[in-house]
Design a protein around this nucleic acid. Sequence first.
DNA 1: CTGAAAGCGCTTACAG
DNA 2: CTGAAAGCGCTTACAG
Lengths: 342, 342
Amino acid sequence: MAVRLQDVAAIAEVSVKTVSNVVNDYRHVRPETRARVQAALVELDYRPNLSARSLRQGRSGVIALAVPTLDMPYFAELAGSVVEAAAQRGWTVLVDQTDGLPDRERAVATGLRGHLIDGLILSPVALEGVELQRTQEDVPLVLLGEKIAGGPVDHVAVDNEAAARAATTHLLDLGRRRVAAIGYQSSADAASGVAALRRRGYEAALAAAGHDVDASLTPEVPGYLRSDGAEAMSALLGLPWPPDAVFCFNDLLALGALRTLADRGLRVPDDVAVIGFDDVEDGRYSVPRLSTVAPAKESIASDAVDMLADRIARRDQVAAREIRVGFDLVPRESTLGRTGQP
Amino acid sequence: MAVRLQDVAAIAEVSVKTVSNVVNDYRHVRPETRARVQAALVELDYRPNLSARSLRQGRSGVIALAVPTLDMPYFAELAGSVVEAAAQRGWTVLVDQTDGLPDRERAVATGLRGHLIDGLILSPVALEGVELQRTQEDVPLVLLGEKIAGGPVDHVAVDNEAAARAATTHLLDLGRRRVAAIGYQSSADAASGVAALRRRGYEAALAAAGHDVDASLTPEVPGYLRSDGAEAMSALLGLPWPPDAVFCFNDLLALGALRTLADRGLRVPDDVAVIGFDDVEDGRYSVPRLSTVAPAKESIASDAVDMLADRIARRDQVAAREIRVGFDLVPRESTLGRTGQP
DNA sequence: CTGAAAGCGCTTACAG
DNA sequence: CTGAAAGCGCTTACAG
């Protein structure tokens, strides 16, 4: 069977406690004793049983990360950063995919994993507009994205409205006059989520420039995938008076839109300028390179992990907090053209 | 504190055993008793302590997946599929990123997670050419990709050599005569890995068509990222007699190559045809759409999970097995051009 | 169909 | 600086 602390203790001729002290790197163990224990540890190839440790300590060193799906580059990149930030604390990350389904998000948020995990970082989609009931028994939680309407929960987010406004303003500053938006959603769940905030930023920018919102320029999308962007762009190009610029609520939508524009033989940005949101790697190599808004992703991941650590340490002794990370407007070829090129 | 089985038992006025029976859905509990227990479970909002269960049973229901990085779409997509396949068995997946470093891969393979996990699915990069020492104490392991040179290990892989050969042959069938390859690596670690196998397929296809391998057409790359592909393509275009086609060992390299070609104002496929490997989502929307080889990714994930389940159940009672999944050649615009378009 | 009790492997007061 | 013992919350023979 597995090698236990006890077996090591027997070989090293010390008590179990002493072995535990060595394993956990406590001081106050005589060098000589420590050496003997170390030797036994190596000889038997001892590996601690994390379940036992976790049962005893009430902490597992494992946190969960729940994202809609790893298939979307933004979430994959985010997951990678979270795993890395967690590793720096010696934590392990367990990944759940919610597919953006309210039931799955709720299940995860209310402790799907029992006492296996010490905390949860949740990137909600559907749940953002929903009251999230939480009890003190529930697992410590940090939300990625906007604050849930209901009870107070820790969260880290970019200022979606300001970022969306910056993206739209960039298009207007370029002299574009019919600026469309791809990313509107009208389902109840989405009402207070990312879609609603970016929409607000878009509309605010238009208003500030003295433009009205033209409903025909804001097609609804069922999702935020490349295919959704491609279809929405098609619809927009079918308009009697099509747009000369488009703000897409994420890069995937924008990449889909670029694809449709290429299929129609339209030039970007000459005929239609395009800007996305997220700054995923794909957009840096797309043809043309995609202008976008870059949230401080590394900060999001590390801030979320830090915040969770703090929440775990202090449970309900401290009020819910909010961290706003910054963003950068990153203009590239899809709005500026190939400047500096022949 | 946390609600225990004991607390539920007290409320329901039954023994702990009976509550356990209800929680674990065993038959042979009187309906009346079951109902009373259920009510108590709900009333106290009981959640089993997975650490305790795992300590007792010797199984945790958690497996680990170790990939180089989630930043690469292929691995992100794979991770998503594995998480999904695992969920169907009621398993949870914990993600490790090795960054392709030999030490990290080795650490993970030899049981980094102690007894926390029931098994491991490892997608090795560096380790493929390295002898992997394994003991019976080590965690059950399934490898994604080619078999390690050393001891017998379960693995699931696509026939890399045949797939690479098919991709190269596709280029030759199109009438291309100077077919380059981007993806060669000469480090010792990579010698028997994916790079070596795809290289072999490429060279075999050339040989079958009566071509010699032209060393200037097979630049080495430090990694398999878009930036590596872009740089290698640049080097290739600097040649006195540049290639008229390129087989890239993965889609990311190919996407990088496309970007460089666009920067130089070259037409794809007219001037240079490009084919990749992996069939990641990006390539379906790139401009031009990327021809590629599509390994049966869903199969890879589900076969790996199935195989791991079997290995966990039977440990060392059964010999190491190998599963070969199929692949499809997927020609798109980057080799065929915009057929059917005006 | 149900109960009382042991034990999974660890850590942690409590003594010494 | 080290040891003996309790107990984390669960499941599982063993009885009844």
